[in-house]
Write a protein that binds this DNA or RNA. Structure first.
Lengths: 81, 81
DNA sequence: TCATATTGTTGTATATACACAACAAAAAAT
DNA sequence: ATTTTTTGTTGTGTATATACAACAATATGA
């Protein structure tokens, strides 16, 4: 199973599933499936989503659980100084 | 269609399809299909392959055709100086 | 050259990604 | 409070990723 941050990224942008779905050209229910982890995105959809969020694929998808955003930010701050 | 560099990376390592397939846990014919562009890898397989080659996903897969290696090396050299 | 390994092709079968519909539950907006 | 929007659930259908088998074509190696 591949983990993803689709829900987090989508809600941060204040988008509904329908809006995100339209932006990447899939059915709005497909976004729901991904967010709930019912199945993985195809590689093609993964690229479209990463592209839409202007992130690299591994910022959006990962074979390992993502760190929390709090952790991510703390790490980023630590790395920067 | 997603482009990939699987064949290039595999042959550079001197691996047969069977060997690469075993390393990432798929049938050797699946590697053949990917190399010929018959279909895309799943996101899961894409991660395994990128992992195996110790590269990020977008070094192995891309929604746009890859630059030739010659071009890639020339660009890298240019960027470095 | 002959044997062996690798690759390409075709075909069948299965699992999974995705579309689409209907409806219930929950959240948001009025 | 009630209407509207968003989300979750279930179900059915289709396309595609993958497994596996058989065999032909190529390449590799002894």
């Amino acid at each position: 199973m591949i983990y993803n941050r689709v829900k987090l990224l989508r809600t941060e942008k204040g988008l509904s599933r329908k809006e995100l779905a339209d932006a990447v050209g899939v059915n709005f229910q497909t976004i729901g499936y991904l967010e709930r982890g019912d199945y993985n995105a195809s590689l093609e959809l993964a690229f479209k989503l990463a592209d839409y969020f202007e992130l690299s694929i591994d910022m959006v998808f990962s074979p390992r659980p993502f760190k929390s955003i709090a952790q991510e930010l703390a790490d980023a701050k630590r790395a920067a100084q």
